[in-house]
């Protein structure tokens, strides 16, 4: 029994070569967005993802976090955002949690650029980009937490 459990523990510790994971927690401060971008870039370079994914995925995560700061935390810097990245064989996923007001990006309307130009307004662009870039955008609000799950399928 003792030996078995030791063996299991050892097995669990063996790294899965197809799975990578990293995590960053930041304050809800717009001036820290560059850290989020740096975190995503570093992760993608570590796992040697082709460069053409990089700009788009960094943009999508930046837009997600910017919207959380602006809407869930109403641009106040006293909250926290937790970002976890996981790369599996076929996809890269982002699990983003915050403790701000409920904010469901799936309820934001698609922007009408021509109308925005006429009226000089510009709402909804970031969410539009995030949805255009990512293959899955899932949102839940549970136990006082906004949880956003973004997935990009990898065709390598």
């Amino acid at each position: 029994m003792g030996d078995d459990s030791r063996e299991n523990t050892l097995r669990k510790q063996e790294p899965d070569k197809n799975k990578h994971h990293d995590r960053l927690t930041i304050s809800s401060d717009l001036k820290l967005l560059y850290l989020v971008r740096q975190f995503v870039v570093n992760f993608m370079r570590q796992i040697a993802l082709p460069a053409d994914y990089e700009n788009r995925i960094v943009l999508a995560v930046d837009e997600a976090v910017s919207n959380i700061i602006e809407h869930a935390y109403e641009s106040k810097a006293d909250g926290y955002i937790d970002i976890q990245i996981t790369r599996d064989k076929k996809q890269i996923s982002f699990s983003i949690t915050d403790w701000g007001k409920p904010f469901n990006p799936n309820k934001v309307k698609k922007p009408d650029i021509a109308k925005s130009i006429k009226s000089g307004t510009k709402g909804g662009l970031g969410i539009f980009l995030m949805k255009q870039i990512m293959d899955e955008v899932k949102y839940t609000f549970k136990s006082g937490q906004n949880h956003l799950y973004l997935v990009k399928y990898l065709t390598l």
Partner: peptide
């Protein structure tokens, strides 16, 4: 990001 592009729009 979209915030920057939004200034142009």
């Amino acid at each position: 990001s979209s915030a920057g592009a939004g200034v142009f729009i």
